[in-house]
Simulated assay, not measured.
Amino acid sequence: MKTVIEQSIKTTNFETYLNRAGEENSEVILFLHGSGPGVTAFANWRYALAACSETYECLAPDLLGFGKSGHPETLPKNRQGWMDLWVNQLIELLDELDIQKAHLVGNSLGCSIALELLLEHPERFDKVVLMGPGGTPNTKLSPELARAKGFYDNPSPKKLRQIMSWFVYDAEAMAPIIDSITDYRYETAMRPEVQLSNDSIFATAAVPVPVTALRRIEHPILLVHGRDDMVCSVDSSYYLLSHLPNAQLHVYGKCGHWTQIEKQESFNHLIQNYFANKI
């Protein structure tokens, strides 16, 4: 297992907190985390970093407004404003690390950012995995996600643990992992700058990528979704499958929103085989 190096990287406009492993490997995977109270790249991707860094250089940055990365002094007024900042942050990061091309893995919000990157900077990315995407015209605001948005109305570890339990299919079986994630995320969530950014992001509505733009994305894309995802329904992946020209879909039964955690061994084999042209 490779050691995960944590470092803060200053670029022209951003301060990015980065988890990095497998630096000696030639091909690069850029992992983009999702949203929610106290989320960080390490909380989202620690198992994938351990598995994939044997073969790939793995980069898992905290997005602007999350975790230990910088937080904008002037908060964007809409989701596209946030999207533009995230795209610029990630391109500046790749430039600073002198990485010209990378594979992409996005989770939830990270999928929407991945699509924006493919539209704005197609030449910088190779193969793409979109896991549990939302942000499509047929993505409904589930009761679980609506309750997660209200976390800061009366925050507590108990409330955060309840929210985390909705992200998995079998909360009882996943209890030890949910407990460890809750402890880690609650401490991060209660930082004032994290709450301020979270409130701003959740106050904005997703801006779906137009069908005309989706049809012009030529990258090979693997969609991965839990059949029992109660946060972002699998319908979102079926929508993208119908419009992305070079997409395929893998659906896990008895799995919720956290495929990378609930089905971690299978998921890590799946994405590495996909990047290695074995699927």
Results as ranks from 00 to 15, higher is better:
187 E>Y: 06
127 K>D: 01
69 S>L: 09
213 A>F: 05
187 E>T: 06
220 P>Q: 13
202 F>E: 13
166 W>R: 04
208 P>K: 12
183 D>K: 06
256 G>E: 09
123 E>R: 08
246 N>S: 15
189 A>Q: 11
76 P>R: 14
152 Y>S: 05
229 D>E: 13
218 E>N: 12
61 P>H: 07
7 Q>G: 03
49 L>R: 01
128 V>F: 09
274 Y>M: 03
217 I>R: 04
131 M>Q: 13
45 W>L: 07
30 L>K: 14
3 T>K: 08
194 V>Y: 02
11 T>Q: 11
196 L>I: 04
18 L>Y: 06
75 L>P: 03
126 D>W: 01
98 D>G: 00
184 Y>K: 04
180 S>Y: 00
8 S>T: 15
73 E>G: 12
44 N>E: 10
203 A>T: 09
136 T>Y: 01
201 I>H: 00
37 P>V: 07
177 I>M: 09
261 I>D: 11
130 L>E: 05
105 V>R: 00
86 W>S: 05
265 E>A: 12
95 D>K: 15
60 A>M: 13
194 V>Q: 11
6 E>P: 00
8 S>P: 09
87 V>L: 11
221 I>F: 03
45 W>P: 04
57 E>C: 13
57 E>A: 10
124 R>E: 10
54 E>S: 15
203 A>L: 09
64 L>H: 10
215 R>V: 01
183 D>V: 12
200 S>W: 00
151 F>R: 00
93 L>P: 08
121 H>G: 10
218 E>L: 08
228 D>R: 05
262 E>W: 03
21 A>S: 10
191 R>E: 15
120 E>R: 15
58 C>H: 07
220 P>A: 13
45 W>D: 02
112 S>M: 08
52 C>E: 02
36 G>R: 06
150 G>S: 12
193 E>I: 10
162 Q>V: 04
100 Q>K: 15
203 A>W: 02
47 Y>M: 11
255 C>Q: 06
72 P>R: 05
91 I>K: 11
246 N>D: 14
